[in-house]
Amino acid sequence: MIVKAIALALILLSTLGFSARAVRPFQMRVRTLEQWQQLVLHLVPLIEWRLTPLPQALMEGARGRGQVELGVAWLTNELSQGEGGFFELWQQMLANDPHLWADDRAVLAELGRGLGVSGVNFQHDHLMATHHELERLCADARTQWAKDGRMLGALVGAAGVMVVILML
């Protein structure tokens, strides 16, 4: 009886864990996109008013922004070695971020393609255009989290509960 109770408890716990894990990609995508959105907004004054060199501006803008900060730290470190081109390294940084989806990477790759390669006015337009794109992606990601993410979580939870019921 005790063994059965322990097994049930373990199944319930793992169900909770799996359910959370099923939801996590949706949740992390939203969080990462929000962090990118904040970074892009932060870059506007750094680039437009202060003319901060791009690696420093990125570091400053990404500070305290979780996975984005890690990626930017890697990128600026690689840039300081002077080995690769900015855009290639930028794409590698995006590819290394597990929380981004293909659509997100495409939008952020375009951001990287235009960063630092023009005068201030075009940088402003480029950052604002990316900000709007990220806003759209964020809205999509939140909807997907609310619909698919929670449904997937509920399904996994339901499957766990079913196993418990069968065991009882």
Binding site: E48, G85, G116, S118, V120
Partner: peptide
């Protein structure tokens, strides 16, 4: 040409807006 772009990028710290 790609290498020249890379060299210029490195020389201006990838920040053309600051050197325009």
């Amino acid at each position: 040409a790609v290498e020249l772009d890379r060299i210029v990028g490195v020389l201006i710290d990838h920040s053309l807006y600051a050197r325009v």
